[in-house]
Nucleic acid binder design. Structure first.
Lengths: 186, 186
DNA sequence: TTAATCATGTAACACGTTACATGATTGC
DNA sequence: GCAATCATGTAACGTGTTACATGATTAA
């Protein structure tokens, strides 16, 4: 999956591993987290598969860099991956896994836990609503308004998700508070 | 993460690898997908870590089975994991990864693709709303209404998520249809 | 002078996927 | 007679995580 994400970026234009690291960190982090070491490893595989070629560029005052360029074979692989019948949702939600077993702790402890989640979720929601990923930058760079449509759709997903998540947290807290009050009433 | 999910189940009572496989498939699949081979492997590690002991039970007419029982050390590990400051959301959404690069294809192809996603999402939404995971079964089995609260919260999350997902898909389709009409108007 | 930025990675380990393997019993 | 259920796994590979390593330049 990450391999194909990198291939998708290379398809916009040649770039170095470092460029890709920064794009993931600055602009794609709201839907994909990738480690630096992983990106460099995948670039090796991409080259080995003949999906990209690399060229070392000597700079002065700065370390050498290695620029990767997608090949026709790489472009074909990108399109193959996009066309794949992918769905057979293999869901894995660490958040739900932990929620499911919360019964191990007391209501009070769990209220604290959910308050903490709520606090942390504000960070994400804030980033998404107040400073949403700047697609304009890429629109100017790539200059293809059709591509921007899909970028915007991923941002909308991020917004809708963070809203839903916040509502779920409030709902959970409400239910726990109610139970707590019932318990203290008898 | 899976290790701890298994530990959480063992904490409800002793069971075999096969029991765990079925619980994941029948009751937890809406938030976690696990392979059979993976579950058996994790059970090995759990035993090696001293988090559970196992006992082979000979049956007649049926193959032998191996029942795992959580140890005090395992229970401590479960509680340690639940108490962990876990959040630093490392999001990874294959769905968004594919959406982001959809610009490679035409509007028409992408409308088809999203219609397909919508069709498939009905399956999940239907399963969640019409035959939601039967927690009553576990409530009777475990007989701890406090635990059921958290099980219900995970189901509510599944419902809210599938609703949001459906709305997002409709939204995307609407935007694509509008663009398609604009294009055919000039 | 200290931290951040630029730029590259390796090694070891943990976790997830795919394909394969075995063999008895029970229900249609 | 055939598929499903019960019950266990191994092997190989792919992907993600953590910790470590290097070293120059530039801005506060």
């Amino acid at each position: 999956m990450l391999k194909h994400g990198i291939l998708g970026l290379l398809n916009y234009g040649s770039m170095t591993g470092y460029d890709i690291v920064l794009i993931f960190k600055d602009s794609l982090s709201y839907f994909w987290h990738a480690q630096t070491s992983q990106i460099y490893r995948e670039l090796h595989t991409i080259k080995k598969n003949g999906w990209a070629t690399d060229e070392t560029i000597v700079q002065d005052g700065k370390p050498d860099k290695k620029e990767f360029t997608i090949t026709e074979k790489g472009r074909e692989e990108l399109r193959r991956w996009l066309s794949e019948d992918n769905i057979g949702l293999k869901i894995r939600s660490p958040l739900m896994m932990k929620t499911f077993f919360r019964g191990e702790f007391s209501l009070e402890e769990n209220i604290d836990y959910f308050e903490k989640l709520k606090h942390e979720s504000y960070g994400f929601a804030h980033k998404m609503t107040v400073t949403p990923p700047d697609t304009e930058k890429y629109v100017r760079l790539i200059n293809d308004p059709m591509k921007a449509l899909y970028w915007k759709m991923t941002i909308e997903y991020g917004l809708m998700y963070s809203k839903m998540y916040g509502e779920w947290l409030d709902n959970c807290l409400k239910q726990m508070e109610e139970l707590k009050n019932e318990n203290s009433d008898n």
